[in-house]
Structures are given as structure tokens and as C-alpha cells.
């Protein structure tokens, strides 16, 4: 349902020869892939490989220099309607949960923002309080949390709340930008189990950006290796051991060695 076609992104370079130089540094080279409806695509890569830039292109915040993002066959960039339809169908969970929520909002306001998006789109007014409680329960938080401020929650709880907010706007696709990376191992598993459950229940499509191979194998159907802004490999998780790409192979090897060393 989501298709990337030859996406190229570059930023103005920090180092310029002249004062008003226009040297640009290219971050993404000709990235193409597609995401099937109802699947979970993992995007793997080391820091600086362009994962998060790809995420920003995906959620409509960064217009690529070249290429097009297609959502259900319609282009996202270039028209207001395309952007609108992306905003209606996509939601996002970020890595840094401390800045993900406005510190001046209570949990109910934060989730309320997601609900408001839904209200605007569907034109009906759900019972805010009931919906918030239901959403909190869905992500495994007690409904009494709705009166708390973000700084009164732990990291795992905050990330769950962010997931509740993302789900509140009833999206079809959710983008996770390193969403579990900053949690401890135990909470990571809990959150990933929650994500699996939600995916089944709400019929969602996930795009899961991470640097952690284990979480990809745990959650995703397909995996895409990104190395220095280029897609080096795109295959399903079952076949991950049969990769022909040297970078992906190296990454896998290092994990296997790490496992053995334990």
C-alpha cells in the first residue's frame, strides 16, 4: 500500500568552499521499496545510514529532492490532497519518549490530540473520557493515569502512552522510529508483544526503523538493510540467513558471534 520510488534526499553541507556555497551532502540514494498492507517492514541500519531521514520522508515532513512516495497508488508529495491522505492514514511513535509528549499536557490531553485527529476526519464526537480509558487499557496502563503529567510516568509507561496516542487517531500505518531502542530489554519485549497484539487487533501496517536486529526478527515480516543511504538488501525475515549482501552478512555475523560469546 505504501511505495517508495527512487527517493533521493540531500542536505546543505556544513562544510562549504564559499560563504554562500551550495554544496549538498546526499543522504539517501535512489531508495525504492514497497510495504504490503498488513505487513511489518523493518528498516535496519547503523547510525548515520539515513534511517531517520527515511522516516521523515515517510511521515511527510521532508520533501525528497527526487522520487515519489505513493500511498495506495497516489503520490504524497506535490499535492495537498496527497499529503492530507497520508496524514489521515499514518501515525508515528518516536525514539525519544521524553520529548514525544508535551510536558505541559496531561496524559488525557496527549491522547486527546490523537482523538481530535480522528474527530476531525470522521466528523463524529466520541466520548473522550471513555475512549481515553479504553486506549490506556489497550496498551496496558491503568485508566487512572489519564490525569498524570508525562514526567510522572516511567520510560516504558511513556512509550506505551505514545503508542496509545498513535493508535488513537486510528491510522492504517504506524511508523516506529527506534521506538523500543531506548527501553531496557525486558520492557522492549513487553512493548513489542503489545505491538504484535495491536497489529492483529487493529489490522495495522508497521514500518519499524531500528538498529537492533533482534527486534526485527521478533516483530517484522520483511527486512530492509540500509547502508550509507543505499538499500543493500530487502528480503523476508525467514530468509535473512541467506542474504547475499556483504554488509547484511557482516551485521548478521556480528550478532551470531555475540550470541556465541554469551
Amino acid at each position: 500500500m505504501l511505495e517508495f520510488q527512487n527517493i533521493c534526499v540531500s542536505f546543505p553541507s556544513e562544510r562549504q568552499d564559499r560563504i554562500f556555497g551550495k554544496i549538498r551532502q546526499q543522504v539517501l540514494f535512489d531508495v525504492s521499496f514497497n510495504v504490503r498492507k498488513g505487513s511489518c517492514l523493518g528498516i535496519l541500519g547503523e547510525s548515520g545510514s539515513g534511517k531517520s531521514t527515511l522516516g521523515r520522508v515517510l511521515c511527510g515532513l521532508l520533501k525528497p529532492d527526487r522520487g515519489q512516495v505513493l500511498l495506495d497508488g497516489k503520490p504524497v508529495y506535490g499535492s495537498r490532497a496527497g499529503k492530507r491522505s497520508l496524514q489521515n492514514k499514518l501515525s508515528v511513535v518516536f525514539q525519544d519518549y521524553t520529548t514525544s509528549a508535551n510536558p505541559r499536557f496531561r496524559v488525557k490531553d496527549i491522547i486527546g490530540e490523537g482523538l481530535k485527529v480522528r474527530e476531525r476526519r470522521e466528523g463524529e464526537k466520541p466520548d473522550r473520557e471513555k475512549e481515553t480509558a479504553a486506549l490506556l487499557r489497550m496498551v496496558g496502563l491503568p485508566p487512572e493515569f489519564s490525569d498524570r503529567f508525562p514526567h510522572e510516568l516511567s520510560g516504558g509507561q511513556l512509550q506505551r502512552m505514545c503508542i496509545a496516542r498513535a493508535v488513537a487517531c486510528r491510522p492504517q500505518i504506524i511508523l516506529f522510529d527506534e521506538a523500543v531502542s531506548s527501553l531496557d530489554a525486558h520492557t522492549q519485549v513487553q512493548v513489542m508483544d503489545l505491538l504484535r497484539e495491536l497489529k492483529e487487533k487493529l489490522d495495522l501496517t508497521y514500518v519499524f526503523i531500528t538498529h537492533n536486529l533482534t527486534s526485527v526478527t521478533y516483530l517484522c515480516d520483511d527486512v530492509l538493510f540500509l547502508y550509507q543511504g543505499k538499500v543493500t538488501e530487502h528480503l523476508s525475515v525467514e530468509n535473512i540467513g541467506r542474504t547475499a549482501d556483504p554488509y547484511a552478512g557482516k551485521l548478521l555475523e556480528s550478532i551470531v558471534m555475540f550470541e556465541e560469546a554469551k
Binding site: 511521515c59 496524514q87 499514518l90 508515528v92 520529548t99 481530535k116 485527529v117 487517531c169
Partner: peptide, 26 residues
């Protein structure tokens, strides 16, 4: 460029919500 503003942008909250509910109180 905070994540909560990015989220609002992403899901298409109107600019005035971002300005008056997120940025001004901050």
C-alpha cells in the same frame, strides 16, 4: 523540532493548534 510538534505535524493537526497549544505554552 520537538517530537510532540512533529507528531502533530505528522497526523495533520492544524497549524493554529501547534502554535497555540504546543509552542505558546512552552
Amino acid at each position: 523540532d520537538c517530537n510532540f510538534v512533529r507528531f502533530s505535524r505528522c497526523v495533520g493537526m492544524p497549524e493554529r493548534f501547534i502554535l497555540f497549544r504546543h509552542l505558546l505554552p512552552s
